[in-house]
Design a protein around this nucleic acid. Structure first.
Lengths: 212, 212
DNA sequence: GTCTATATAGCGATAGAC
DNA sequence: GTCTATCGCTATATAGAC
């Protein structure tokens, strides 16, 4: 169950080296400045190509942006596949998972992608939904699976694993993600640990097996 | 304690009628189209004034945007002051609070403000932090106060009310806010109720008084 | 204070030579 | 495929008349 087949949507499209070069510069510029403030002149200059070359590889600014975001979605899934922690007792396993999740969410690059996708979602709603399916939905499914396994083993009493996974992930995030997006620096490791431990404690007590 | 004095920061600056007219049109345009895509020509046209008049009242586009956001922060606090629910038993009180909070968060206008502030926070970091102080921080303080009261009465066992408030609010949000920002429609009332009830159940079990 | 008209600059996208 | 040069348009902001 852990090594399930990758769906076709997650396969990596092949780009020529020049296209890779452009994508790399475009990603840096979009994440740094946002969608509208990033000009195609800037992308071309920072990629070391002419604007005409840029348009030979990507038909429009919107097309280039979509390619950048699609590529980031793939990277996020890669990073999150390592949440397995199958052996530890439930509280410790959840703390490991929570810390890994929070560390991932608060990486400056992830914060930047999150911010720019939210900012662009009104203009490109399909992209917003694609991002949600590629990221949060997948993470929630992984956690729900993990919780269902542990519930079968009698370590927790969980009527609805999907809902429990949503509540768990929401608690791990707390306000940290929002604060990062709004210009606060990343929280200290001690703050992260406090949130994770408090959330896990609440979770395991609230979903404690009924008979005990 | 409920009727505490408003701090000086929350007092409403007085604008002339013309300025109000401009602010109203600017708010509509910014929330509809985003910061960069909104032109001063559009604002002037939709406000029914000339561009020169617009610039007579607001020195720049950035200044106008800051005025719009500051005004929205005030409105949010007004709306949230009604969370009191002092009489009900703890689970029912938390469900009422949770539903009110979620209904508020998912109002299209609130989603739009949230999205645009996040999108602009990189460019105007002070504005992002001011928004956080005016909104989430205040709500968390209100909830923490409420929880501390109930803990004193023996209905809950809460070592850290601030942390408990953060966890509670995070669970109420769940993924609903993110989904709204990413282009999904608002969740159904039934979905909201499911999330709120599940979160409250987890919360009251996890923070149940120790002796019982 | 409010208008019309305009200055100045940057944008996305393309033409045409090589 | 890649370049230089440019088109056509729109942006923020301001000048000058009333």
């Amino acid at each position: 169950m852990a090594a399930m087949m990758k769906p076709a949507l997650a396969t990596k499209p092949a780009f020529s080296p020049k296209a890779e070069q452009i994508l790399s510069a475009a990603k840096a510029a979009f994440l740094r400045d946002g969608y509208e403030p990033t000009s195609m002149d800037t992308v071309a200059k920072e990629a070391g190509v002419s604007k005409a070359t840029l348009y030979a590889h990507f038909t429009s600014k919107e097309n280039l942006f979509a390619a950048v975001v699609a590529r980031e979605c793939l990277r996020h899934v890669e990073m999150l596949e390592r949440i397995e922690e199958a052996k530890l007792p439930i509280a410790e396993a959840l703390e490991e998972i929570g810390m890994a999740f929070l560390d991932f969410l608060l990486r400056p690059e992830v914060v930047a992608v999150h911010r720019i996708v939210i900012g662009a979602a009104h203009r490109f709603p399909e992209m917003g939904r694609a991002f949600y399916e590629a990221g949060p939905t997948k993470v929630q499914a992984i956690i729900a699976n993990f919780l269902a396994d542990r519930a079968e083993k009698g370590e927790l009493s969980i009527p609805d694993p999907e809902m429990a996974a949503e509540l768990f992930l929401a608690m791990m995030k707390g306000h940290a993600q929002l604060k990062s997006e709004l210009g606060y620096g990343a929280p200290s490791p001690a703050d992260k640990e406090r949130t994770v431990k408090a959330g896990v404690a609440l979770f395991v007590r609230g979903y404690a097996p009924v008979g005990i």
